[in-house]
Design a binder for these strands. Structure first.
Length: 466
RNA sequence: GGCGACGUGGCCAAGCGGCAAGGCAAGAGUCUGCAAAACUCUCAUCAUGGGUUCGAUUCCCAUCGUCGCCUCCA
């Protein structure tokens, strides 16, 4: 039994073998910070967070790098519109993004390099590409020469001959080949610029990722990730640039997440159908976003709608139900049944591993977890003590936390109200003893309106925040 | 136009050669003063048409439909 990963490069699932035993070098393309992040970004961040957490869970030491593209045309354009400094704009959205990631319980990367902090490294890399004949200079711009790479197109499955056939893009006549792409862009008046052997300018988009990879992870890495929309041209170009210098396979496994779709359409800024992460989190716990992702395959499009969201909210509540303690005054279940519960926990673990090992099949992994939820709830309903529930609940906590779920009941600020609620519950129970149903129901209804849920059982009453 | 992916119950979604996971919703029941929660039970032959096979949701071909990439994009 071993981990298998679907590799975009080979279009098959391959057994995972890192370059160095026990260690994983992983790079994920982060956002271009010119606007607030939407839930499509959240999906991607969560997908790779789950992959990273699982790799760590099965014992790998993961060096996880995610970059920020903090200089590009859109940032410059946006800053100009707003009349502010482009670097300040980028910084603001980087801060936003980090706050979003934290709220989504995405583990911080080992390193978050930025394009603007890698200029020297980028320039020296471009120079080497020119020296190697893989790039050329035109009027202060530097372009990568795609025809210098016989393997160009291997990731996206395209051929240079067929690519320009339907191209709708205005071809820059100065380029040797229409598909040649910019490594360095000459700066226009008033744009952020750095000195270079080719004049003032800034790096192109693709080269920064190649540079940061090489700088922080080395000439070869294990996993390179991003959304499917990055396969071409971004990742194709990264491969071309990097391999032109190293003559070695760049990333061993290319992993791409599917797009989040809203009303059958990809959610993106250009379509204008975006929901920001902030907007989402105002209405829902971060766990719900994560469950949305976990419900399906990371490689497939994720259907987003109000209906699906409601279903996910319900599933979230069901998961929470597994964490409830034993009933008050639980009499206990037979040793055989307690043993069966402990075995169910082991079985869930085995199924979880088996599923995750199969290209991170989170949907199947969740099925194993839901099965465990059922077993726990069943045992509790039959009167298991807390000690008897313990092993199964510990397993539940372990597995859900590997997936990055927090599953914390609402708590914290409300704690000062707790004694008063306890008091109301106590009073209400006296009313119930007196069979004063009208008043006791009223208390329950009004507490509900305040967000407190009362649940009566034959052994007593429990309450929780909604 | 080129390349690619997908089409599984009311909804979301695994599976991908041998009697179709899981979640939500729905219906019936247990428990409860009632309610809620939980528990029990019920609920699909896998877009359509051919083909390969002892046997196909799973492989092949065709058709219809949806989506992505080819331009910035997670």
């Amino acid at each position: 039994m071993a981990l298998k990963i679907y590799n975009t490069l080979s279009r098959t699932k391959e057994e995972f073998q890192p370059l160095e035993p026990g260690k994983v070098r992983m790079y994920v393309c982060g956002p271009t910070v010119y606007d607030r992040a939407h839930i499509g970004h959240a999906m991607s961040a969560i997908v790779f967070d789950i992959i990273r957490r699982y790799l760590e869970y099965i014992g790998y030491e993961v060096r996880f790098v995610m970059n920020y593209t903090d200089v590009d045309d859109k940032i410059i354009e946006r800053a100009k519109q707003l009349g502010i400094d482009p670097f300040a704009l980028a910084q603001r959205y980087i801060d936003d993004y980090q706050r979003n990631l934290e709220a989504l319980n995405v583990k911080p990367a080992t390193l978050n390099p930025r394009a603007t902090q890698e200029i020297d490294f980028i320039i020296s890399m471009i120079q080497k590409l020119i020296d190697a004949g893989a790039a050329y200079v035109v009027d202060g711009d530097v372009y990568y020469r795609v025809e210098s790479d016989p393997e160009y197109g291997k990731l996206s499955g395209r051929k240079l001959e067929t690519m320009n056939a339907g191209a709708r893009v205005q071809v820059d006549e100065r380029k040797e080949h229409p598909m040649d792409f910019a490594l360095w862009k000459a700066a226009k008046e008033g744009e952020p610029a750095w000195d270079s052997p080719w004049g003032k300018g800034r790096p192109g988009w693709h080269i920064e990722c190649s540079a940061m990879n090489m700088h922080y992870l080395g000439e070869q890495i294990d996993i390179h990730g991003g959304g499917t929309d990055l396969i071409f041209p971004h990742h194709e170009n990264e491969i071309a640039q990097t391999e032109a210098l190293t003559h070695k396979p760049f990333a061993r496994y290319w992993i791409h997440n599917g797009m989040l779709t809203f009303k059958s359409e990809k959610m993106s800024k250009s379509v204008g159908n975006m929901i920001t992460i902030d907007e989402f989190l105002q209405k829902h716990p971060g766990d719900v976003m994560r469950l949305l992702v976990l419900n399906g395959s990371y490689r497939s499009p994720l259907t987003y709608s109000d209906e699906v969201l409601e279903q996910t909210e319900q599933a979230y509540r069901r998961l929470l139900s597994a964490k409830k303690p034993a009933l008050p005054n639980a009499p206990g279940i037979s040793p055989e049944k307690a043993q069966a519960l402990a075995e169910a926990a082991q079985k869930a673990h085995a199924q979880f591993i088996e599923s995750m090992d199969d290209d991170f099949n989170t949907a199947a992994a969740m099925a194993a977890i839901f099965e465990l939820v059922k077993q726990i709830n069943q045992a509790r309903a039959e009167g298991a003590t807390q000690a008897q529930l313990e092993p199964a609940q510990a397993m539940f906590n372990e597995l859900t936390s590997v997936l990055g779920l927090q599953l914390q009941e609402q708590a914290g600020a409300q704690t000062s109200a707790d004694p008063f609620i306890d008091l109301l519950v106590k009073v209400r129970n006296e009313l119930r003893v007196q069979k004063n149903w009208a008043l006791s129901d009223k208390i329950r209804d009004e507490l509900k309106a305040l967000g407190v849920i009362l649940e009566d059982s034959k052994d007593g009453t429990t309450w929780s925040w909604e």
